[in-house]
Amino acid sequence: MGSELLNRIGIPRLIISLFLAFLVAAAFSFGLPMGQIFSAMLTRFGMNALLVLAMIPTIQAGAGPNFGLPFGIICGLIGATLAIELDFSGFPAFFFAVGVSIPLGAAAGWLYGLLLNRVKGQEMTVGTYMGFSIVSVMCIFWLMAPYTSPEMIWPYGGEGLRVTVVLDGRMEQLLDRFLSFNLLGANIPTGLLLVTAFSCVLLWLFMRTRAGLAMSMVGSNPRFAEASGLSVNKYRLLASVISCAMGAAGIIVYSQSYGFIQLYQAPLYMALYSVSAILIGGASLQRATIAQALIGAFLFNGLLVIALPVANVAMDSDISEIMRVIISNGIILYALTRKEAGGDAR
């Protein structure tokens, strides 16, 4: 029975949870400000949750984790920069950015989905490199695009947009501060968590509609889905559209909380971090649930938030960043080498 339980929790998830618990204990014993740390953990969780949730549709539809998330992310960045260019601020800026980027992301997801349907079985490799490519194309775009807002272009005649655009006074921590309150010294980013909860509910509802159920059938067993009269390609396409649209909205939520829009090469590895988060949450390359995404987002980001101050006390170095690289890629390797059941039976 013990091994059954262990199997259900999953060894990586167990190790990471224990490690996180250990770090929390260490932080506490070092006398670090736990309230601040806890609210930072919550904020990082909320910042990333939507990007991690975006992995669910493609995994469920059998196309694997969406390594092509940058397709959605760049659309979100376009939306956010347009909002500033048009001089919106506050909630109008946020809603404008989200409103612009979701359809853009959906369109990008549609194109990306067409590609995915032609490379079944190789989605991860192709997605990764197509994602890298689109990020570098967008680098050229950021250089050439005719933006004029002084907040975004270089002050002294440099070319193109800045590498990071400050959101101060536009929508910096707009959601985080909305209805936020203080609990035992920890600042609760209510708005951010509400948005996360709202996204979860929407996704949960969608996954239980006929289309959502069909998508999950397609991923679970494409032959079965075909025999039930479903078009496998159609639902994989839908999954890609939803995932990229979520990625587009997700990066805006991320940026407002972070306080900066990061352009150029920044989105390069974002897909990888989201992929590892959901895998840490216990998902496999074939199946994922909302709970796994949330747990994963919390564990992964919690670990990073707390590792930095603890490491700084224990030793003076960049261990936090190194740890992030090792953990996030290690968990993906683990998932890749696991003998998985299911998938495309052909």
């Binding site: 032609r118 490379v119 192709v126 490199y129 490519s133 570098s136 194309v137 680098c139 050439m144 193109g160």
Partner: peptide, 24 residues
Amino acid sequence: QVGEYFRVFVAYGVIGIALALHAW
């Protein structure tokens, strides 16, 4: 700078397209 980014794009793009064509 455009040229710099262009060659990065070529590196990634060539791999992406080659892999996609192969899978296709």
